[in-house]
Design a protein around this nucleic acid. Structure first.
Length: 454
RNA sequence: GUGAUUGUAGCUCAGCUGGUUAGAGCGCUGGUUUGUGGCACCAGAGGUCGCCGGUUCGAAUCCGGUCUUUCACCCCA
């Protein structure tokens, strides 16, 4: 006999965990829906050609590939094998597990472009898979909750994203968090302002680590990435500026980016987003301007978001941004969109670490009908449907056994009430209803019981 | 992919420098209580010490490999 085990980085979710996950999932789903997003699902697997090349070299490495069915070696020659994995792979695998929800969404938009009404707002809540090394807050199978709008450049979408984040976090009870916002155009402007135009990619990778590894290390990394001393010197005011105050940060950048058209545009977009947010009645609470925030630059072109919960050592729980040409690689250029994503698994970890889950067992039934013998069982069975018809979660203990065992079962499962059915109860057409939390017990009719439990 | 780290009963863990029949707490089963759970007491079941190999008279303990866990880096939700 073998000991069963799970693949690395995957987990089972038991009843309690599922109740909690559903609480998070339902909150997010309701929020998306109330903002006018409609649900979409795509297959777990995509053609490998859809996935490869979309996430950079790193991403390709982290893709789970699915071995072709049947004799997967039939197209592989001796020579392919010698040439190594790169040439052999396409011959043994043509499908892969989805790595995120954005690329499958782009594929869907392109394939259904004639059917869709733009702007198209969709949300998608599904697992994704990454062949990463698991660690804290990082799994190989995890859920993403994406909401994207494609086909509009309106900054209303950006403002609404902030509103949705506020709403979800408030419902989940997470109070201490920050929504960091930035704009890719500001980063481009910074690269221009320091005389390294077009190099915002490497610039971002390096400065993104500022709070993690410190100024000196960042400068070192910039030199390694080919930035001149002059550029690094020009960057100094940025390192020293502490953008605690949103407006102060903006004012500072207006000066710093005075020569960069793109940079000024980025600032204007950010200000406009805040204006719309205000007219929507939203607050700026938790919103922080972080002009060094850089993430997922492979496709973001405008706004960038990242949400972090404070007081826990877990990476970002949500993030997103605007991309101008999501569907270009699939032959449909010029479709701009903006989207963001909640990481349910990380939200779960955050809430667990902060003790934000309510104590009561949300998924447990409310009533267990217990009995002493076949007669009691039959009597209880006759009541069961009437209880359930009222919408009360109820179950009947299935085996004839001692009452002790049935009570034990109820308290372990977190069922608060037990309806005991014996000869006395059958005779008087009642139920001995016991409240397991207080230990109190009273003889009640079916109607009285329904009244009490409803 | 790089560097660490973990693995002993269902769970959490003891087991010192290698030495008889590997322990505890919790949980589980039964009983004290044949119409009443939680508390208490009593009894019992349960372990190829992750796996493979090596060193040794002798390995849970030392060595190598492998898988697994956790963590950091890279990157990311």
């Amino acid at each position: 006999m073998q000991k069963p085990s799970l693949p690395k980085g995957t987990r089972d979710f038991g009843p309690i965990q599922m109740a909690r996950r559903n609480f998070i999932l339902d909150t997010i789903k309701e929020t998306f829906q109330i903002f006018g997003y409609q649900q979409l699902e795509t297959p777990a697997m995509e053609n490998l050609s859809t996935l490869t090349g979309k996430y950079g070299d790193e991403g390709d490495q982290l893709l789970f590939k699915i071995l072709n069915s049947g004799d997967f070696l039939k197209n592989v020659s001796e020579e392919d094998f010698k040439n190594g994995a790169a040439t052999t792979l396409p011959k043994v695998s043509e499908k892969g597990l989805r790595y995120d929800l954005t690329v499958p969404f782009a594929r869907y938009v392109v394939m259904n472009r004639h059917e869709l009404t733009f702007p198209f707002k969709r949300f998608q809540i599904q697992p994704v898979w990454r062949a990463d090394r698991p660690q804290k807050g990082r799994y190989r199978e995890f859920y993403q909750c994406d909401a994207d709008v494609v086909g509009t450049d309106s900054l209303l979408c950006e403002a609404e994203i902030i509103l949705m984040i506020h709403k979800v976090f408030s419902k989940l009870g997470i109070q201490d968090y920050s929504i960091k916002v930035n704009n890719r155009k500001i980063l481009t402007g910074i690269a221009e302002a320091i005389g390294e135009a077009g190099k915002e990619g490497p610039l971002c990778v390096a400065i993104d680590k500022l709070d993690k590894i410190g100024k000196e290390k960042v400068e070192e990394e910039l030199r390694q990435r080919g930035f001149g001393e002059e550029a690094i010197t020009k960057l100094q005011p940025l390192f020293d500026a502490n953008p605690e105050d949103f407006d102060a940060g903006l004012e500072f950048l207006k000066g710093f980016l005075a020569e960069s058209e793109t940079g000024k545009q980025g600032i204007a977009e950010l200000e406009e987003t805040l204006n719309i947010l205000a007219s929507l009645g939203g607050t700026r609470d938790h919103v922080a301007f972080d002009f060094l925030l850089a993430r997922g630059l492979s496709y973001y072109t405008g706004a960038i978001f990242e949400v972090k919960a404070h007081g826990v050592k877990i990476g970002s729980v949500s993030g997103g941004g605007r991309y101008d040409d999501l569907t270009g690689v699939f032959g449909m250029p010029g479709v701009s969109g903006v989207g963001f994503s909640f990481g349910v698994d990380r939200l779960y970890d955050v809430m667990e670490e902060l003790g934000l889950f309510p104590e009561d067992n949300l998924s447990a039934p409310v009533l267990l009908l217990a009995h002493f013998d076949q007669k009691g069982f039959d009597y209880a069975a006759s009541l069961l449907s009437q209880v359930r018809a009222k919408g009360i979660r109820a179950e009947l203990y299935p085996d004839l056994t001692k009452l002790k065992k049935q009570l034990d079962y109820a308290s372990k499962k977190g069922i608060p009430f037990v309806g005991i059915c014996g000869d006395k109860e059958i005779e008087s057409k009642t139920v001995a209803l016991k409240d397991l939390t207080t230990g109190e017990q009273s003889s009640v009719t079916l109607e009285e019981m329904l009244e009490k439990l409803y």
